[in-house]
Simulated scan of single mutants.
Amino acid sequence: MAITVCIVDDTNDIRHALEEIVRLSDEYELLGSFASGESALEKIPILKPNVVLMDINLGGISGIECVRQLKPSNPDVLFMMCTVYEEDEKIFEALSAGANGYILKKTSPIKLLESIRELSEGGAPMSSQIARKVVTAFQNRGPVQENLVGGNDAKLGVLSNREKEILELLAKGLLYKEISAQLFISQETVRKHVYHIYEKLHVNNRVEAVNKFFGR
């Protein structure tokens, strides 16, 4: 079954190029393409794509604000920022707004399509430059918390050592198959651990889990 995609970008040439990349692959289906955040806010809840490629600077409402408004009422829609921005502030603002991935526009067409598939399969794709910034930010926070603290978090309990180990690997951007190989366990076992991590942390995806556990 094809992965359905919407594109939001106010630069015509870039938007048309992204449209062609998606259209030329049988594994993906383009549901809609929009030149403004306002149009996206109106149409995406109706189209309900699997993945949205979202630019940040849209002239009117920003892509980050667009994600912030759409995500709560459309939790199953996965948003991947596709932008020229590499600043830490933009990256973490986008992830905090609900973005599930963050890639740069200079990403090759093949890598772009791979990232869309990875996102739809539970991953959180990021361009290597972005992933390094995210990992560095987490490392600068010091050791992983041993216990979740404060408010309702106290009721969530602590992750097992294996779950913490897997969460740290997720934070580094590893795919399930890479985690499987590194820990010498099956991909299905990795999936089960990830499911329990999401359940314990009351989150829906990798980025939310990492942000919550590391206290961002």
Results as ranks from 00 to 15, higher is better:
2 A>R: 15
7 I>G: 08
8 V>S: 04
9 D>G: 07
10 D>P: 11
12 N>D: 12
14 I>A: 03
14 I>M: 09
15 R>D: 05
15 R>Q: 08
17 A>H: 10
19 E>D: 02
25 S>I: 02
25 S>R: 07
26 D>C: 00
27 E>N: 01
28 Y>K: 11
32 G>P: 00
36 S>H: 09
38 E>H: 01
39 S>Y: 06
40 A>S: 00
40 A>H: 04
40 A>L: 08
41 L>G: 05
49 P>Y: 04
49 P>G: 04
58 L>S: 07
61 I>L: 02
62 S>F: 04
63 G>T: 02
69 Q>K: 08
71 K>P: 00
72 P>N: 08
72 P>R: 07
73 S>L: 05
74 N>I: 05
75 P>W: 10
77 V>A: 06
78 L>S: 09
78 L>E: 13
79 F>N: 07
79 F>M: 11
81 M>P: 01
83 T>L: 01
85 Y>S: 13
85 Y>M: 10
86 E>W: 10
91 I>N: 03
96 S>N: 06
97 A>Q: 03
99 A>I: 05
100 N>L: 08
102 Y>A: 01
107 T>K: 07
108 S>H: 02
123 G>R: 00
131 A>T: 11
132 R>S: 14
132 R>H: 09
134 V>T: 06
135 V>T: 12
135 V>E: 03
137 A>D: 00
137 A>P: 00
139 Q>Y: 10
141 R>E: 03
144 V>F: 15
145 Q>G: 10
146 E>V: 13
146 E>C: 10
147 N>L: 06
151 G>Y: 15
154 A>W: 12
156 L>N: 07
156 L>F: 14
157 G>I: 14
158 V>P: 12
161 N>I: 15
161 N>D: 15
161 N>V: 13
162 R>L: 13
162 R>C: 06
162 R>H: 01
162 R>V: 11
163 E>T: 09
163 E>A: 11
163 E>Y: 03
169 L>C: 03
169 L>I: 05
169 L>P: 03
170 L>Y: 07
171 A>K: 06
172 K>H: 08
176 Y>K: 08
178 E>Q: 12
178 E>L: 11
181 A>M: 14
182 Q>S: 13
182 Q>M: 09
183 L>Y: 01
184 F>H: 11
185 I>T: 11
186 S>I: 06
186 S>Q: 03
192 K>N: 15
193 H>P: 05
193 H>N: 15
193 H>W: 00
194 V>F: 08
198 Y>E: 11
199 E>Q: 13
199 E>N: 10
202 H>L: 12
204 N>T: 13
208 E>K: 10
209 A>V: 14
210 V>L: 01
212 K>S: 08
213 F>M: 13
216 R>K: 01
